[in-house]
Lab assay of single mutants.
Amino acid sequence: QLNEKPLPEGWEMRFTVDGIPYFVDHNRRTTTYIDPRTGKSALDNGPQIAYVRD
């Protein structure tokens, strides 16, 4: 279940091809599976993935 609260300024939620949510921090140009609103991860110790700018 996804959090309904808005993401912090400069953050975006995207999904992997497998449908796993991850979070893009455009301020720091990093990505993470940890939801910045809750501190909880969509994966157990998930790796960071490459930042992609559209």
Rank of each mutant, 00 (worst) to 15 (best):
L2G: 08
R37I: 06
W11F: 06
L7S: 01
K40Q: 12
A42K: 15
D35Q: 01
T32P: 00
G10Y: 04
R14F: 09
T30Q: 13
D54R: 05
D35S: 01
R14L: 10
K5T: 11
K5P: 06
W11T: 07
R29P: 04
R28C: 08
L7F: 09
L43W: 11
F15Q: 14
V52N: 15
P21W: 02
T38K: 11
T30A: 13
T31D: 02
K5R: 11
L2N: 13
R14N: 06
Q48E: 13
T30W: 13
R29M: 12
S41Q: 14
F15M: 09
P8A: 04
R53F: 02
G39V: 13
R28E: 07
V17S: 10
L43V: 14
E9V: 09
P8G: 07
T16L: 04
F15D: 07
T31G: 02
V24S: 03
D54T: 05
E4H: 02
R14G: 06
N27V: 11
G10I: 00
G19D: 14
Y51N: 15
S41K: 14
T32E: 00
A50Y: 02
F23K: 01
A50V: 07
N3C: 06
T38V: 12
D35K: 02
Q1N: 06
L2H: 09
E9D: 14
R37Y: 00
I49R: 14
M13K: 15
D18I: 05
M13E: 12
T16A: 09
N45L: 10
N27F: 05
I49C: 08
A42I: 10
R37V: 06
R37H: 02
T32A: 01
L43I: 13
P36Y: 00
Y51M: 13
K40L: 11
I20S: 10
Q48I: 03
D44C: 07
A50Q: 12
N45I: 06
T16E: 00
G19T: 07
D25Y: 00
T32H: 01
P8W: 01
T16G: 07
Y33V: 03
N45G: 14
L7T: 01
V24W: 06
E4T: 10
E4G: 05
L2V: 06
D44H: 10
G39N: 11
Y33G: 03
Y33I: 03
D44M: 09
L43D: 15
Y33A: 03
N27I: 08
R53M: 07
Q48T: 15
E12R: 03
R14Q: 04
R37M: 03
D18Q: 07
A42R: 09
P36R: 00
S41I: 04
L43Y: 11
P6K: 11
V17A: 13
I34C: 06
D25K: 00
E12T: 06
Y51L: 13
R29Q: 06
W11E: 02
D18M: 06
A50N: 06
T32Y: 00
T16Y: 02
G10T: 01
R37L: 06
G19Q: 14
R28N: 14
T32L: 00
T32I: 00
L43C: 13
D44Q: 10
T30M: 15
A42E: 14
E12H: 02
I49V: 11
P6L: 12
G46L: 07
T31Y: 02
R29K: 10
K40Y: 11
A42L: 12
L7W: 02
D25H: 05
A50H: 13
A50E: 15
K40E: 12
F15E: 11
P21S: 08
R53E: 08
T38I: 08
Y33H: 05
P36C: 01
P6A: 14
W11Q: 03
D18Y: 03
Y22Q: 03
I34Q: 06
D54G: 04
R37Q: 05
E12C: 13
V24G: 00
L2M: 13
L7I: 08
D18F: 04
G46V: 10
L43S: 14
D44E: 13
D18E: 10
V24Y: 02
I34K: 07
T30S: 09
R29W: 09
T38P: 12
P21C: 10
R14P: 00
I20K: 09
G46A: 08
R14I: 04
H26D: 03
T16M: 03
P6S: 14
S41P: 13
T31L: 02
Y33D: 03
E9L: 10
T38M: 05
H26W: 04
F23Y: 10
A50L: 06
P47F: 02
N3A: 01
D18H: 09
D25G: 02
P36T: 00
W11G: 01
G19F: 07
T30R: 05
T38C: 12
E12A: 07
R37C: 04
E9I: 06
G10C: 04
G10F: 01
R53L: 07
D25E: 02
D54L: 00
L7Q: 03
R53T: 11
I34A: 10
Q1K: 15
R14T: 07
T31F: 02
N3F: 09
R53Y: 04
H26N: 05
G46K: 13
V17L: 10
G39L: 09
N27K: 13
F15V: 12
R37D: 03
D44W: 08
R29V: 04
G10D: 04
M13Q: 11
V17T: 11
P6D: 14
T31P: 02
E12F: 01
G19C: 11
T32R: 00
E9C: 04
T32K: 00
D44V: 07
Y33R: 04
A42N: 10
I49G: 15
V17D: 09
K5E: 12
T30E: 14
V52W: 06
Q48D: 15
L7H: 01
S41V: 12
E12N: 05
L7Y: 03
I20V: 13
Y22I: 02
K40A: 14
